[in-house]
């Protein structure tokens, strides 16, 4: 067990070091910022899907809610960015509480139900009727507090916290309980696991992560429209990265994000013409030949994956 924790710690340290040092090697900080956003979101998906089996198709709903709650705390209440980001996380948890009846659904029902929920939030936020509150379709402008360096550092801290949480879950009774629920909720309940409470915990945790990440994103990007932060592709990217790397592990989403998002940018910057085509083919090939994610390569050889 202690050895497992050590492996997790190694992944943690490598990731944090990379994101701290990379900007001084390659000065496109935004690239690494986006990478961190996707990494944290992928880990959020991992907590929910990997450990409980619920696939949140509408995960971006929490992200957008966090972004808007943070932005509005800054513009309307004049709260400094970092506490505002915490409010973003809280707002997402509140949304999670409102949406918790979704947990009664399973499989594709849950996936699509959460998608519907995220679209609803988007249509409400962007509706002109709420213009006085959300600025409706005119979007957000946070230029007065724009500090890319500070938001970058904040994002590193968020990634560190998220990675820490995932390492904890991976190595704790809580994580084991969640996996037991995922495999067979009825027997897990009989074995004395509080099914509903544990599952809700994972759901709120995952919502909070997306909310906080959304808040940091809002601060970093600072001028945006509702479509930017409720873009369904954000969900899809986070899910694809997670599944591609391998769920229920600490390492999987990290690998998935680095490889796929890395490819995405390498192709995007060098060969823009057939960009989408190459990306689609890549995903297809990987799904067919590595269906359990990249970590299955290591597992097959009998290695432990943190």
């Amino acid at each position: 067990m202690r050895k497992h924790l050590l492996y997790g710690a190694i992944v943690f340290v490598v990731v944090i070091l990379l994101f701290t040092l990379l900007p001084s090697v390659y000065s496109n900080e935004d690239l690494f910022f986006q990478a961190m956003v996707y990494l944290a979101l992928a880990q959020g998906v991992n907590i929910l899907y990997g450990f409980t089996g619920y696939l949140p198709f509408g995960y971006v709903g929490f992200f957008g809610t966090g972004a808007y709650a943070t932005a509005l705390s800054i513009t309307l209440l004049h709260i400094p960015p970092i506490p505002a980001i915490l409010i973003g996380g809280l707002a997402s948890v509140v949304l999670g509480i409102l949406l918790s009846p979704l947990l009664r659904l399973s499989g594709a029902y849950f996936a699509i139900g959460s998608l519907a929920a995220s679209q609803m939030v988007y249509y409400i936020v962007s509706n002109p009727a709420l213009q006085n509150l959300t600025n409706g379709p005119y979007g957000i402008n946070l230029e007065s507090v724009y500090q890319p360096r500070a938001s970058y550092i904040t994002m590193i801290v968020i990634v560190a916290l998220v990675m820490g949480v995932v390492i904890y879950i991976r190595n704790s009774r809580f994580g084991l309980a969640l996996q037991a629920i995922r495999e067979d909720p009825v027997s897990a309940g009989m074995a004395g696991i509080h099914v509903v409470r544990q599952r809700a915990m994972a759901w709120f945790l995952s919502a909070m992560i997306a909310g906080v990440v959304g808040g940091a994103f809002a601060w970093h990007i600072s001028v945006f429209y509702p479509t930017t932060v409720f873009d369904l592709n954000i969900s899809i990217f986070a899910i694809v990265f997670t599944l591609f790397g391998g769920v229920t592990t600490v390492l999987g989403p990290v690998l998935g994000m680095f490889v796929l998002y890395g490819f995405y940018n390498v192709i995007g910057i060098s060969e823009p013409q057939y960009f989408q085509l190459i990306y689609g083919v890549l995903i297809l090939v990987l799904v067919l030949f590595l269906p359990s994610g990249m970590v299955s390569l290591m597992k097959r050889r009998g290695h432990y994956v943190p």
Partner: peptide, 16 residues
């Protein structure tokens, strides 16, 4: 560069 109509991708590429 090609941002494919995505504003998040565009942000990275402007920075690039």
């Amino acid at each position: 560069y090609n941002d494919q109509s995505s504003s998040t991708t565009a942000a990275t590429l402007y920075n690039q």
